[in-house]
Write a protein that binds this DNA or RNA. Sequence first.
DNA 1: ATGATTGTGCGACAATCTTCGAATGATTGG
DNA 2: CCAATCATTCGAAGATTGTCGCACAATCAT
Lengths: 112, 112
Amino acid sequence: MAASRVYQHPDISEIAMPRVLFALSEPLRLTMVRILADRGEVDSIELGPDLPRSTLTHHTSLLRESGVVFVRAEGRKCMIRLRRDDLQARFPGLIDTVLAGYTESEQPKEQA
Amino acid sequence: MAASRVYQHPDISEIAMPRVLFALSEPLRLTMVRILADRGEVDSIELGPDLPRSTLTHHTSLLRESGVVFVRAEGRKCMIRLRRDDLQARFPGLIDTVLAGYTESEQPKEQA
DNA sequence: ATGATTGTGCGACAATCTTCGAATGATTGG
DNA sequence: CCAATCATTCGAAGATTGTCGCACAATCAT
């Protein structure tokens, strides 16, 4: 019954701006963060139902290691949530500003 | 006397969040943006006096193409300034928040 | 005009990143 | 215990990125 899978998370003070920005600079990950902001804690599968599992693990790990999300094992599932309070404490306003400025429908078209 | 070098800049509406975040995710470029925020318009050389010129051009071009900076030729020099108002209009609060959260001295130490 | 100075483009190289299949490990249900 | 299910790790392939030397164009001082 013990949760075997354990995840390492950076402490608040270890969260680095360039790393967070890089994590958020990928459209796929940014979309994941948007989903997390809208739905709270979700099963990892909700972040990319159509993605190969290894790809999903890659992106969630990167988000976790950069300090953007918190991950915990629940049975076989993997529950993920945004570290909103921690990010707000470390970089006030950043996440809110990024999310406010990014909606997929609002994206500029591809330059022809 | 005509300015021969002409630089292309994205329109405000074409500035994309992932691209801006990527531009800012590089410590070197982030430092450049900080200098620009502090000093206003500067000669490009001020952004990296010790860098090879081609490297400097690479980063300033990336910042320009992502919509972060405005570049103009002045004689042989290259003057660069932050597109602060444009960025503020497109993504309110983003630049201020990023700059407020990033000072080189405040960076987390390298993981040993 | 000549020579010095500055930025840019090109090409190469190494490093990093993204994607994903296959194998492995962990957990649940029967 | 056994099989099914889910996440993770590993490895590889392709794409992107960062760095930089070199040649070239543009500009300025003399």
